[in-house]
Structure formats: structure tokens, C-alpha cells
Design a protein around this nucleic acid. Structure first.
Length: 336
DNA sequence: TCTGGGGTCCTAGGACCC
DNA sequence: TCTGGGGTCCTAGGACCC
């Protein structure tokens, strides 16, 4: 639609590997300032600077230095937020952008955070904001001064407690510097023409299973759980999953399960706008699961060898160089 | 305003066990 | 035959994040 309006529009495709590379470089700079760095997302992290006052006597000055080094060495700007806990630092970092340092110390909460709409509070999304609106709780200050039990009954025990604490600037969670294990590998696609038959759906399932499985294998992981997501043309989303006795990383096996799941979840009639395959309940234990009866082990080897061959070509020539045969025509299903 | 793709976590209900 | 209490696991869906 944009191209139709602006025929000269310059389109720049995303380059995720470049993004990852700069993400790592950015975090490496952060790690030069503290041994305790928590990766919060691809472009955000928390630095625990407590107990480092002798090294960095002026924390604000250090924040500016960090920000400027990233700009000079990597060529992009960041915001740095300074506070006594992760919540306050994160809130501060989201104040005015770009290329800024902000503080949100305990004695600044009332002035800088309480006037903000509840929606600005970390982890307080649209649904919770709507519930709070029904109680006329509109600002973070309103929430901070509200009855915690009312909030808990409204948002649930856990979320209610957390949001009430957050509104008061309380967050006792530690900076977790060790790398967290990935918990799922998924791929999904929104199709530009509705999927209305199993043959087209299956082609997508194969491509999606293959993409997810291949990424999982690259991490040396296997999954116990396969989950298929579908969204129909009314935007109604459905998930269907299956837990299996043994973990797998084999594309063919994952594809077969996803086909069964799709047939259980979809009548084949309602037009689909999105299909996804996600692998969960991940293990990195490297035990070989042999068939109890031995008869299928040859077949298992074959499937494993096929995956290994595909993976090695991908490693050499890049992800796009090899596609499973039946996935090639999935992008644009032919019109009748 | 309506929407893509990749994730994590929580909740509630059901099945099942002792 | 109907009932308690405690627990785990699985599943579907929703809320939230970037």
C-alpha cells in the first residue's frame, strides 16, 4: 500500500544478523562497566553498579560516558536511566529520547513518575489499564495510593502485587547476569492471501517447522512440545499443542506432528490468515533416544542425516540457500 | 489505528495419582 | 458409592514485552 502511494519509496529489508552483531557489541561495552549485566532484550540491559562507588564515584558522569562511547564506537544513540532498582532505571530510560541520561531516584518518584499514566508503567499493558480505568485509576500515583487488595482482585494476585509495588517504586528483583536458556523456538507467518486448503497449509507448516527446528538444532537443543497456532480471518487465534514422550529435533517428525495438530484444530474451511509452529519444553541433554524395538533406528538415522546435510549447507551459504522442495512455492499461492 | 514476528510468564480447568 | 486433601502435569488462552 505504501509503494502504491509512493512509487519511489526506498525499501530497506531488515538485516537481523547485523542487528544481533551490534546488540552484542553494545552489551560488550556495557560489560566493561560492571561484571553484572542482565540482558533484558536485544537492545536493552541492566547494569548493577552497586558497590562500585570507588570506581565510579559520579554515577551520572559514568552514565554519560557510557552513552557517548556507544554513540562514538557503534554509531547509534541510546538512553541511559539511573535508579536504585531495575524498575526505576528502566522507567528513567524511557523518559525523553533520544540520546539522553535520566535519573529516577527514590526522592524523585513523586515528581517524575506519579504524574504519568498507568500505561507507562513497565508490564502494565492495555488490558490492565482498561481495568484500572474502571476504578478511575489513571496515573501511576493513583495506582500507588490505591488499596492493594482491590488491585490484586482486579489484575490477579501476582500481577496486582507487582504493579502496586512498581507504582511505589519498589522492585527487589536482582540483576541476573547469567544467560538465560531459550525456552522456545517458533516461526509464524501472516499470509497475504487467506489459506483455505490443507495442501497450502501443509506447505507452510513444513517451511515453518523446518525454520524453527533448524534454529533449535543450531543451539543443540531438542523439544518435547510442538504447538501450532492459527488465526482466522476474524482475527480469532487458536493454539493446539502436543507433549511427547521423547524430545526431538527432527524436521520431519516435527512437521508430521504439526500436520496432525492442524487437522485437529482447523476444519479446513474458515480462511486462515496466520499459521505458526513453535517448539517448546526444550532440553539440551544429549541423550540419544533409540526406538525401544530397534526397527525404526535406520529411518531415524536417515532423517537425522538429512537435517544435518541441510544445516551444513545453511551454515556455509546462508539460510536462504536451501529450502525444502515443497516449501518453495509457498510465498504466493497461485490464484485460480 | 490496526497490525508483524519473536518471545516469556501466568491463570484456570481438567485429568490423574496417592 | 460418594467423599477429602494434596499434589503434578497438560492444555488453552491471555497479557505483556521488544
Amino acid at each position: 500500500m505504501a509503494l502504491r502511494k509512493c512509487p519511489n519509496l526506498k525499501i530497506t529489508p531488515p538485516d537481523f544478523s547485523l542487528y544481533s552483531e551490534y546488540s552484542k557489541a553494545f552489551k560488550d561495552i556495557c560489560r566493561q562497566y560492571s561484571p553484572s549485566v542482565e540482558e533484558f532484550s536485544i537492545d536493552e540491559c541492566f547494569l548493577d553498579m552497586s558497590g562500585m562507588e570507588h570506581l565510579y564515584p559520579d554515577i551520572i558522569k559514568t552514565a554519560y560516558e557510557l552513552k557517548d562511547r556507544i554513540k562514538n564506537e557503534l554509531g547509534f544513540t541510546v538512553n541511559v536511566g539511573v535508579g536504585s532498582n531495575k524498575l526505576l532505571a528502566k522507567m528513567a530510560s524511557d523518559f525523553e529520547k533520544p540520546d539522553k541520561v535520566h535519573t529516577l531516584f527514590d526522592d524523585e518518584i513523586e515528581e517524575k513518575m506519579w504524574p504519568l499514566p498507568v500505561r507507562d508503567l513497565l508490564f502494565l499493558g492495555k488490558a490492565s489499564a482498561q481495568k484500572l480505568e474502571s476504578l478511575y485509576i489513571r496515573t501511576i500515583g493513583d495506582l500507588a495510593h490505591s488499596d492493594i487488595n482491590v488491585i490484586k482482585s482486579m489484575l490477579g494476585n501476582k500481577a496486582g502485587e507487582q504493579m502496586h509495588s512498581f507504582a511505589n517504586g519498589i522492585d527487589n528483583s536482582p540483576v541476573e547476569s547469567k544467560q538465560r536458556q531459550v525456552k522456545s523456538y517458533g516461526h509464524s507467518i501472516t499470509v497475504d492471501e487467506d489459506v483455505t486448503d490443507f495442501a497450502s497449509a501443509d506447505r507452510l507448516l513444513l517451511a515453518l517447522s523446518d525454520a524453527a527446528a533448524s534454529r533449535m538444532r543450531a543451539d543443540g537443543a531438542r523439544a518435547y512440545n510442538v504447538c501450532v497456532t492459527i488465526r482466522d480471518n476474524h482475527f480469532k487465534t487458536k493454539t493446539h499443542q502436543r507433549q511427547s514422550e521423547f524430545p526431538t529435533d527432527i524436521t520431519k517428525d516435527i512437521y508430521d506432528v504439526s500436520k496432525e495438530l492442524l487437522r485437529e484444530a482447523w476444519n479446513g474451511k474458515s480462511p486462515l490468515r496466520l499459521i505458526g509452529v513453535s517448539l517448546g519444553d526444550i532440553t539440551k541433554e544429549s541423550g540419544e533416544q533409540l526406538s525401544l524395538f530397534g526397527s525404526n533406528n535406520d529411518e531415524l538415522d536417515k532423517k537425522r542425516n538429512l537435517d544435518a546435510a541441510v544445516d551444513s549447507i545453511r551454515n556455509k551459504f546462508g539460510d536462504s540457500k536451501i529450502l525444502l522442495g515443497s516449501t518453495i512455492n509457498t510465498r504466493r499461492p497461485k490464484k485460480k
